[in-house]
Design a binder for these strands. Structure first.
Lengths: 346, 346
DNA sequence: CTGAAAGCGCTTACAG
DNA sequence: CTGAAAGCGCTTACAG
């Protein structure tokens, strides 16, 4: 009985090739029976099962997922697509989704689109062609058409941070406005009245970005505090941007005892500018960040920030993916709570 | 002539299915000819080509990579496997490899193993079964056996940060010891004589970690400075760990005017501890970090650090992958230069 | 409890 | 310049 692998027996390298046929031949059964054993289908004798298992072991058989997926259209894999990983917010989001994917027994493959729409499209194309069980995505600039296109072609998609739903596509969001209000209410509650916001340069043009600014204005109004344009300074959402914005506010001698930052990076920059200027946090100025990246608790003083539960986000995304797959109807967007984590900076 | 797609014509959802056959039928040619056009094989008339292209457009045909890869064993995809993404060092390494992969026309799929060997093994298994063109990996704890196993089964592997080579596996490294020496030589050169090191807790047990400590001792010796155990404090390689280590040194009243940190996170922690203690950087104490994460230049004072060129690392890794694939012989490990980036902290 | 046949969507020799 | 046949490695009805 010949039981050698199909490929390159003589090369020595890459014993890549044992197939169902090789196992079947060695075990003296049909490929169909080996398939049954491999997939735990039941409908075979215990003796047969042992013989097959032994043969599998002997030839080092591993099922070819490509062949399997070509038929079943399932791979036990989910794609995760984010803009980038250098921002800790996304790096930590990945951890949350990863945990959920693992818990559901799936391998997660990650890709980054760097806010490039063509790249995003190409990534979804690749994931589609690999027959991933679904894609969990953070769309560039909240772009929708690409999502609908791939969903319509058969890719199950869950989008983060934007409201979208339709055949084969759903979304998981968090209430950014509510988060911003929590931060602002906290500043008011601890007695701060001269509040400023360090905002994102693009906050005026984008679909998604202005929500924190709107919440800032709204919260001032609710607290009976006065708003003026001088109280919002916009820069890149980075440490450098935050430092510059804070310096500009100090240079303009705008009265300030409370700062709300677009994100934690800007808050860290503000912390530096305040330290250099000899202004004490929180004694003279209280400071609130956004996202609660891991570094917030390691800063001196540690930073009060708005947290999104990334594990919850991951769980909800994977769960929604499964619901859509089992019945591809429209699903309501899922909301995940945000909370304010109060630390030394306030 | 019937030209409808193979699947679920009546569902409306998921027009997933146009195949070579559908295109061929519409264009009035054989599937073989469509395949030629799709793959730019040449050997067909211009008129035929146009007719096929039109048909492809009309039915929305996209080649099924699963079917193609089942035969060709190639996918135009490379896997990147790292421990995690929360450490900016890895997040930034991903950027470097991503750029190189894109430049070579490939899509990169990333996975994280979280230093779990079983997870690492399973990820390589998945990548293998997807027939990626190769895997670029940062092995957990420098583990080798898993790499050899998958390489032998046919997966082309390039490993980071460890010396390994063999059939189907190569490596790209950087000289950590040299980097540490550069940092130490710089501290000595600017006149610092009381040097301490903030080291990694596990630096004593591991294969990879002790190199920086060894370089620290060696550099002291070269400079004619005295070494004592009190001059090395080990903690978690985090901001908190760095702060604690620095605080311990200050509390012990160990004379110190120069600090070499295991990585940038520990250096940031040290910066905080020094600031709280009212010690000026670099006037009283000079500080050198390791890895040169992006944040180094945004700190106040900005942090001198040992930089690894992540773009170069990415390029070398992808290039080595191609060389191994084109001729799977043993290749010498590739070394990438490290350099010291001097900033305000020294 | 088990197997022979068809086929997933494509490419690879081979023949004209 | 073009096509009919075989087959990549597996699963899915179907038959016994």
């Amino acid at each position: 009985m010949v039981t050698s692998c199909s490929h390159s027996v003589h090369t020595g390298v890459m014993s890549n090739g044992a197939t169902l046929h090789d196992v079947a031949a060695l075990a003296g059964v049909s490929p169909r029976t080996v398939s049954r054993v491999v997939n735990d289908e039941a409908g075979f004798g215990e003796a047969t099962r042992l013989r097959v298992l032994e043969a599998i072991e002997k030839v080092g058989y591993r099922p070819n997922m490509l062949a399997r997926a070509l038929i079943t259209r399932r791979t036990g894999t989910v794609g995760l697509v984010v803009p980038q990983m250098v921002d800790p917010f996304f790096a930590e989001l990945v951890v949350g989704v990863q945990a959920a994917a693992k818990a559901s027994g799936r391998t997660m493959l990650i890709a980054t689109h760097d806010d490039d729409l063509a790249e995003f499209d190409s990534i979804l194309e690749t994931l589609s062609s690999f027959a991933v069980d679904g894609a969990i995505v953070y769309s560039p600039q909240g772009e929708r058409a690409t999502l609908f296109k791939h969903a319509q072609r058969g890719l199950t998609i869950v989008a983060f941070g934007m409201e979208i739903s339709g055949p084969n596509v759903g979304s998981v969001l968090w209430d950014v406005s509510r988060g911003a209000e929590l931060g602002m209410e906290h500043l008011v509650q601890i007695g701060r009245t001269n509040l400023v916001m360090l905002s994102h340069t693009d906050a005026v043009n984008s679909q998604l970005l202005p929500r924190r600014e709107t919440a800032f204005r709204h919260s001032l109004q609710t607290a009976g505090l006065e708003f003026s344009e001088a109280r919002v300074v916009r820069r890149d959402p980075t440490i450098d941007g935050g430092r510059e914005a804070m310096q500009e506010i100090l240079a303009a001698r705008t009265p300030v005892d409370g700062v709300f930052a677009y994100n934690d990076a800007m808050a860290i920059g503000a912390l530096q500018a305040l330290a250099v200027a000899g202004i004490r946090v929180p004694h003279d100025v209280a400071l609130v960040g956004f996202n609660d990246i891991a570094m917030c608790s390691a800063l001196v003083p540690s930073l009060t920030s708005v947290r999104l539960d990334r594990s919850a986000v991951g769980r909800e995304a994977v769960a929604l993916l499964d619901r859509i797959r089992s019945a591809p109807h429209d699903y309501e967007p899922v909301y995940v709570d945000v909370e304010l984590i109060v630390r030394e900076s306030t």
